[in-house]
Design a protein around this nucleic acid. Sequence first.
DNA 1: GATGAAACGGATGAGCA
DNA 2: TGCTCATCCGTTTCATC
Lengths: 146, 146
Amino acid sequence: MEDIDRQIVRLLARDGRMSWTDLGRATGLSTSAAQQRVRRLEQRGVLTGYAAVVDAEAVGLPLTAFISLTPIDPSAPDDAPERLAGLPEVEACHSVAGQESYILKVRVASPGALESLLATIRARAGVSTRTTIVLSTPYEARPPEV
Amino acid sequence: MEDIDRQIVRLLARDGRMSWTDLGRATGLSTSAAQQRVRRLEQRGVLTGYAAVVDAEAVGLPLTAFISLTPIDPSAPDDAPERLAGLPEVEACHSVAGQESYILKVRVASPGALESLLATIRARAGVSTRTTIVLSTPYEARPPEV
DNA sequence: GATGAAACGGATGAGCA
DNA sequence: TGCTCATCCGTTTCATC
């Protein structure tokens, strides 16, 4: 990837609403050249979308946790991600190497909500769970150094 | 929070570059009313920014891992987050309850890069590490159900 | 990749409920 | 306080070189 493209990715990762004009100014390109670069980066799948960053606490989800999943029946088909995709509390699902099969990141309103979410996860996916509660988050979702 | 604000947050979480005009159309508001709502949500800290979503693989960081940290000297001041903030590979740092003190999420180019990153982390923060490598990510950074 | 023109969206202030 | 409307200016988009 070219250096200008790296710059564009870095700038848009920090301010996703930046105008193509400002992007051009920052990279020494005309507005339309900057826009073309962005379109190409989108088409190549480098930029997959734009999102507002939402403060989970401010929207009533102050409790974050990581939940590791272990299938109870190792011979059963492993479709935990699909079975859990419908739960809005589940922000991320990673398949991992190691003792456990998956790591989920979840956001809930309260310990009680976490308790019932865990019950739902166990029932739906046929897994046992190990939960690690997040106390604070010094930083999160920092843009990658491209 | 009002229902219209919830709608706005949900829409902007899915498309952070949506125009205020479209946002107004989707919520039954005028352009400037929608814009005012967004400004207020920003000021109240509900919306903390806008970011392009970058495909880590596409920018040469195909390897994701979670690293749990345990301080070697429990009596030493615990400033691991600050000590590691300068490492661009570290995307997130959470302080957690449980056996370990912190969970990091990191993105690197290769197993070799992970190896040297681990050495750096241990040296800089005075911790022992436990690494869980991500094999695949069925989903990630799904917007919260506000 | 740059330029220029037309269409569009964003910002702002006045007026109103 | 929060909305609409009108207006101005910057931005986006597209054709063209």
